[in-house]
């Protein structure tokens, strides 16, 4: 395996949801531009973090990559194959290599299925194994995620949030995927449990050479776990860079505001910090502002440019991309 192999490449991906009106005759009156033209790649074995505020399109991005939604436009290359063009059996086979872990460990596990059935299901669906072999594999998976192999006959409600999230991880690992979309895998958990899951994901990545797209709104967590981080705002990626540069050399005004808003658990540091307080709220993705989507809240906007021309998502060198007219 080459060191810098690109596993996944997303090109100008768009995912729009139609807004319709009328009960019998549904008229198409507009679109929610949940994801509105984003491009990035992920190397094999890498973790790319995706952060941004509620509704900016993070989950939609993850789902569109996995073809759980068929994208409105754009391409998603996985191991060189364009997933957007695949159908039927071919797509199903590729899907085996890509899994998802969800935010809510309560809602995402079927309460009427045993832990064994939940974890084993993808193996059965893909006709990989059954019977005794399957049971043995499920027990092994339970141990891999730090649970007792004899939990196999229990039901989800018998477990805590953190344990349920481990079950979700075991299920995702069952088919030996290369790539996992982790959609806010720790947001619903208590602080003392979050670290357990973060460490587990890191250990599994090293052990099985996994590639992650790690989605979260908590920038501290994302920076901790990621090699590179993409910052999203209203359907666009505004900045993408390495974990170190994200903190030391953020260029986009939105990234800067976001960073300054994250509380740091140290009163001495907090006392000295300058906050960039953003005014107003995020506009609706059904009707995003013209030009730069962020211009309505940006303190640095250039009148006549930022509100008219969309800034290009530019490579400024050194693994750093920014979409801002202020950044040359």
């Amino acid at each position: 395996m080459p060191e810098n192999e690109i596993l996944l490449e997303v090109k100008n991906l768009k995912m729009w949801f139609p807004i319709t009106q009328g009960i019998i005759f549904q008229r198409h009156i507009g679109d929610i531009k949940a994801v509105d033209g984003i491009s990035f790649y992920i190397r094999r074995g890498e973790t790319l973090g995706l952060v941004g505020e509620s509704g900016c399109g993070k989950s939609t991005t993850g789902r569109a990559i996995l073809q759980l939604y068929r994208p409105t436009a754009g391409d998603v290359y996985f191991e060189g194959k364009n997933l957007c063009k695949l159908k039927g059996e071919e797509l199903r086979r590729m899907r085996r290599k890509m899994q998802m872990i969800f935010q809510d460990p309560y809602a995402s596990l079927n309460p009427r299925m045993t832990v064994g059935d939940i974890i084993g299901e993808p193996l059965e669906v893909h006709n990989i194994m059954k019977g005794k072999e399957l049971r043995e594999r499920v027990m092994e998976l339970l141990e891999i995620v730090g649970l007792n192999r004899y939990f196999i006959n229990r039901y989800p409600h018998e477990f805590s949030g953190g344990q349920r999230q481990r079950i979700g991880v075991a299920r995702a690992l069952a088919v030996q995927p290369d790539f996992i979309v982790c959609d806010e895998p720790i947001s619903a958990l208590d602080v003392s449990i979050q670290a357990q899951i973060i460490n587990l994901l890191e250990e599994l990545q090293a052990k099985f050479h996994l590639t992650y797209l790690f989605i979260a709104h908590d920038l501290s967590v994302v920076r901790h776990i990621s090699d590179r981080v993409a910052v999203m705002y209203l359907g666009k990626i505004v900045e993408l860079t390495t974990r170190d540069k994200l903190y030391s050399d953020a260029r986009h005004p939105y990234t800067q505001a976001l960073l300054s808003a994250v509380p740091i658990p140290d009163p001495v540091v907090e006392e000295k910090r300058k906050r960039i307080i953003l005014v107003g709220d995020v506009p609706s993705p059904a009707n995003p502002p013209k030009g730069c989507h962020f211009h309505t809240r940006c303190a640095l906007k250039i009148e006549g440019t930022c509100d008219v021309v969309e800034p290009e998502f530019k490579d400024i060198g050194g693994e750093h991309w920014v979409a801002c007219h202020r950044v040359a």
């Binding site: 670290a195 501290s220 920076r223 903190y247 740091i264 140290d266």
Partner: peptide, 24 residues
């Protein structure tokens, strides 16, 4: 335990988190 289990945005390098094992 709480302080050791949360990542800090301003952490220089990637320090391993030390979770509190078990449940309340």
């Amino acid at each position: 335990g709480l302080l050791g289990s949360i990542p800090r945005l301003d952490a220089e390098r990637k320090a391993k988190l030390t979770p509190i094992e078990g449940l309340p």
